[in-house]
């Protein structure tokens, strides 16, 4: 037991000395902030519902024609400033004097098909933004036209809140923050084991009265402890940031279990290949494969983590237990493999 602790301490100390863990945390912070940047920047630009939420869009539209009465309220509700003009020339003049950003011309009479003419600036970026903002008012106007033609649309007046941020936070950011420490743990185990093999220090270690399982187990446990510390940090930061998280202890345990699974898998691979390049390569591939496969078979822990965090009524300790049992099986298998190797 003492040997186990000493080995674990040695591994933790080497991680601390090389400041590896700092880089790892930096990467995670970077990924998280990048993801939220992507969310805020990109989704608010491409997501028609969110565009008006971001206050930066301040669009003025000039409108011409007799059929405009039905469209104007939808535009205003969307936060678009509407300026009426008598004819197209005046409206284009208004654009040139920088009074409006775009012009909508409606036909004078309603036919079977109503064709609107939309005049936008030539700059691609500006034009696509305008189209994006106008999309929702145009759809609502389309529903009005449908009603005039006797087609009833169900669920047309649903409101709700734009869900993208919510979905992104719980189904991307949170799982990533719990998965990444696990990924790092696996990397640490793979690296430190294959380093022992390549520098032949493993022979020295095994010459001491320590078993294979002690060496490997100590390395895995050190990595898991680091992962648990990181998960605690991320969960605390998310809470500080005002994100509501239910089932906190279970989430934390889940982070540790994932780290254990990754660590054991990495140990398998490293002991098998004994060579860093191969071990890292196979580890990375196996990891992607496992993620894809778990997604494929619908047992993805991603959904479970998200459900735990939002306080889903049907998800709880039982679901986490399944993963704990699975981890136990993996540890047993690794133990068997290591004892066999020692016998050889």
């Amino acid at each position: 037991m003492n040997a186990f602790l000493a080995l674990m301490k040695r591994d933790l100390a080497s991680v601390a000395r090389e400041r590896t863990i700092l880089i790892a945390i930096l990467i995670q912070l970077f990924i998280a902030s990048f993801s939220s940047a992507l969310l805020l920047g990109l989704l608010s630009l491409y997501d028609p519902d969110a565009v008006s939420v971001s206050a930066r869009v301040n669009l003025r539209v000039g409108i011409v024609g007799a059929l405009s009465d039905a469209l104007v309220p939808f535009l205003r509700e969307r936060g678009v400033q509407v300026v009426r003009y008598d004819n197209l020339d005046d409206a284009v003049g208004g654009y040139q004097q920088n009074q409006v950003d775009a012009v909508v011309m409606t036909p004078n009479a309603s036919n079977d098909i109503v064709t609107l003419d939309l005049y936008v600036p030539r700059a691609e970026a500006r034009a696509s933004l305008i189209q994006l903002v106008l999309q929702e008012p145009l759809r609502r106007y389309e529903n009005v036209l449908r009603a005039e033609r006797g087609i009833v649309t169900r669920y047309a007046d649903l409101k709700g809140a734009p869900p993208t941020t919510f979905e992104f936070l719980y189904s991307v950011i949170l799982p990533v923050l719990l998965f990444f420490p696990a990924f790092v743990a696996g990397n640490l185990v793979a690296d430190s084991l294959s380093e022992e093999f390549e520098l032949n220090t493993i022979e020295t270690l095994l010459a001491a009265p320590i078993s294979w399982s002690t060496v490997v187990g100590a390395k895995i446990l050190a990595a898991v402890l680091l992962a648990l510390a990181q998960c605690a940090l991320w969960l605390a930061l998310l809470r500080l940031n005002g994100t509501a998280l239910e089932n906190l202890p279970l989430l934390w345990v889940m982070g540790g279990v994932l780290a254990g699974m990754y660590g054991v898998a990495a140990a398998f691979i490293a002991v098998w290949f004994k060579n860093r390049e191969q071990a890292q390569f196979v580890y990375a591939l196996a990891l992607m494969g496992a993620l894809g496969a778990s997604y494929l078979f619908g047992v993805s822990p991603l959904t479970m983590i998200a459900r735990l965090a939002i306080g889903d009524a049907y998800t709880g300790a039982g679901n986490v237990l399944v993963y704990v049992v699975f981890l136990g099986v993996m540890v047993l298998a690794l133990g068997v493999m290591l004892t066999r190797r020692a016998v050889k």
Binding site: I113, V114, R122, L138
Partner: peptide, 18 residues
């Protein structure tokens, strides 16, 4: 539905500069 009844609105985009 018949296509003209189901989708009664068309939008034609023009460039305002040229």
């Amino acid at each position: 539905q018949e296509i003209t009844r189901a989708f009664p609105l068309r939008v034609q985009i023009h460039s305002i500069d040229a």
